[in-house]
Write a protein that binds this DNA or RNA. Structure first.
Length: 270
DNA sequence: AAATTCTCCTGAAGGC
DNA sequence: TGCCTTCAGGAGAATT
């Protein structure tokens, strides 16, 4: 599923094809995503020029002088630059047609969403509630330590809370906690300042490492083929339940935390 | 206020 | 081969 590194990689892949381009047509074949695609989307976006493409958390923003299209990929969404003669498939819900190329939104499970933002503000209720970007200076160990005093929620659920930090999903929460040597089910309020400093650095590092790999495994944005890789080869715990820990060779534990699959090493993570 | 549960959806995988 | 069940999960809304 697209997490922050995948969204960032998609952004870098599609931006060069979009910036400065005029939208000639918009086709909405399925408007029932997580929330309805705005009725006015085609009318308002057609004829506009895409001035910039930005990311906030896992949202992409396509900016025009008439406002911005805000896109979330949910867990099965993808954006691809295709030749406009390639016929849409079953789950290709929205096409944004440029000069000869089309930005195609596909989302089999339809957990994704699109909103229209009025010009200037880049403000939306869903954006305004988000916590700091993980790469920002605001996000650090001191911040995590400060907001977690007396909180008993599991630290993994804490860092997956988008109001705490934006864009950390299940894969990288598992991976960051393994790197930091912290049990995912440890109460957030029972973690020292120094361990939070380590955790914040591990979150930044695991995300930036994944973005670097995204450059190699997610590089094809033009063609209709190929599923994005999920960086399997560099994952230490996610998807490796009951396999051996890469450090101590003991079997990795699998538990559920907040309906999410959670994998960790009982020995390396305390 | 904080924490937990519910909800949307369909493809993949496993059992029989 | 094919049908059925189970699971996966982002994250806001609803509920406790």
């Amino acid at each position: 599923m697209p997490e922050l590194p995948e969204v960032e990689t998609i952004l870098r892949g599609i931006s060069p094809h979009l910036i400065g381009q005029k939208v000639h047509a918009v086709h909405v074949r399925q408007s029932r995503l997580r929330w309805p695609v705005p009725d006015k989307l085609a009318q308002i976006l057609t004829g506009q020029t895409i001035d910039a493409v930005k990311r906030r958390a896992k949202y992409l923003l396509l900016r025009t002088s008439a406002g911005s299209l805000m896109i979330h990929l949910g867990m099965s969404g993808s954006l691809r630059i295709v030749n406009d003669e390639i016929p849409p498939g079953k789950h290709d819900h929205v096409d944004i047609c440029l000069d000869g190329l089309t930005l195609r939104f596909r989302d089999p499970r339809r957990f994704g969403s699109m909103f229209w933002l009025d010009p200037g503000s880049d403000s939306h209720p869903l954006l305004d509630k988000l916590g700091p970007e993980p790469f920002s200076g605001m996000f650090n160990g001191e911040y995590l330590y400060r907001i977690t005093r007396k909180r008993r929620v599991a630290v993994k659920q804490l860092i997956m809370n988008s109001q705490v930090v934006a864009g950390v999903g299940n894969i990288y929460a598992n991976e960051a906690l393994f790197r930091a040597g912290i049990r995912p089910d440890r109460a957030a309020g029972r973690i020292s300042r120094i361990r939070y400093e380590n955790l914040a650095e591990c979150i930044k590092k695991v995300l930036s490492d994944a973005i670097k790999q995204g450059g190699t495994t997610l590089r094809d944005f033009s063609g209709g083929h190929g599923q994005p890789g999920y960086f399997q080869q560099s994952l230490n715990v996610y998807g490796r339940g009951n396999q051996t820990c890469v450090v101590c060779l003991r079997p990795l534990k699998v538990i559920r935390l907040g309906q999410r699959s959670t994998v960790f090493c009982n020995r390396c993570q305390t």
